[in-house]
Amino acid sequence: DVEPGKFYKGVVTRIEKYGAFINLNEQVRGLLRPRDMISLRLENLNVGDEIIVQAIDVRPEKREIDFKYIP
């Protein structure tokens, strides 16, 4: 289970104008929005990159997770 405030290693699987989709595993995916990136820009991410993200909002009923990147 993903818990708000905890850090997780994930893989960038898709990049859109509104953010990057990060997979923690095959069943768990969330969104990293540009506003939640500190010292990292969306255009510097590539599909396949491994990054450490912090879960900031977890909505299991909608199967949605918002992430934050903190270097």
Score class of each variant (00 low, 15 high):
Asp1Gln: 15
Asp1Pro: 15
Asp1Val: 15
Val2Ile: 15
Val2Leu: 09
Val2Ser: 02
Val2Asn: 02
Glu3His: 14
Glu3Trp: 12
Pro4Arg: 14
Gly5Thr: 04
Gly5Asp: 07
Gly5Asn: 09
Lys6Ile: 09
Phe7Asp: 05
Phe7Asn: 07
Phe7Ser: 13
Tyr8Asp: 00
Lys9Gln: 10
Lys9Met: 10
Gly10Asp: 00
Val11Lys: 11
Val11His: 10
Val11Thr: 13
Thr13Glu: 08
Thr13His: 06
Thr13Leu: 05
Thr13Ser: 13
Thr13Trp: 05
Arg14Trp: 08
Ile15Thr: 03
Glu16Gly: 09
Glu16Trp: 10
Lys17Trp: 15
Lys17Asp: 12
Tyr18Gly: 04
Tyr18Glu: 08
Gly19Asp: 01
Gly19His: 04
Gly19Ser: 02
Ala20Leu: 04
Ala20Glu: 01
Phe21Gly: 01
Phe21Lys: 03
Asn23Cys: 09
Asn23Gly: 09
Leu24Gln: 00
Leu24Phe: 04
Asn25Met: 05
Glu26Gln: 14
Glu26Met: 13
Gln27Thr: 14
Val28Leu: 14
Arg29Ala: 12
Arg29Thr: 12
Arg29Lys: 11
Arg29Val: 13
Arg29Glu: 10
Arg29Gly: 11
Gly30Met: 04
Gly30Phe: 04
Leu31Tyr: 04
Leu32Asn: 01
Leu32Gln: 01
Leu32Gly: 01
Pro34Thr: 10
Pro34His: 07
Arg35Gln: 12
Arg35Thr: 11
Arg35Gly: 11
Arg35Pro: 06
Asp36Arg: 04
Met37Thr: 05
Met37Tyr: 02
Met37Gln: 03
Ile38Phe: 10
Ile38Gln: 12
Ser39Gln: 14
Ser39Arg: 11
Leu40Glu: 06
Leu40Ala: 08
Arg41Ile: 10
Arg41Trp: 10
Leu42Val: 08
Glu43Tyr: 09
Asn44Ile: 08
Asn44Tyr: 12
Leu45Lys: 01
Leu45Gln: 00
Leu45Arg: 01
Asn46Glu: 13
Asn46Trp: 15
Val47Ala: 05
Val47Cys: 06
Gly48Cys: 06
Gly48Asn: 07
Gly48Ile: 01
Gly48Asp: 05
Gly48Gln: 04
Asp49Phe: 06
Asp49Cys: 07
Glu50Lys: 14
Glu50Asn: 13
Glu50Gln: 14
Glu50Tyr: 15
Ile51Lys: 00
Val53Phe: 02
Val53His: 00
Val53Tyr: 01
Ile56Pro: 01
Ile56Ser: 07
Pro60Gly: 09
Pro60Thr: 10
Lys62Val: 12
Lys62Thr: 11
Lys62Gly: 07
Lys62His: 09
Arg63Asp: 11
Arg63Ser: 12
Arg63Phe: 12
Ile65Gln: 03
Ile65Val: 11
Ile65Phe: 06
Phe67Trp: 10
Phe67Val: 04
Phe67Asn: 01
Phe67Gln: 02
Lys68Ser: 12
Tyr69Gly: 03
Tyr69Trp: 09
Tyr69His: 07
Tyr69Pro: 02
Tyr69Asp: 03
Pro71Ala: 10
Pro71Tyr: 06
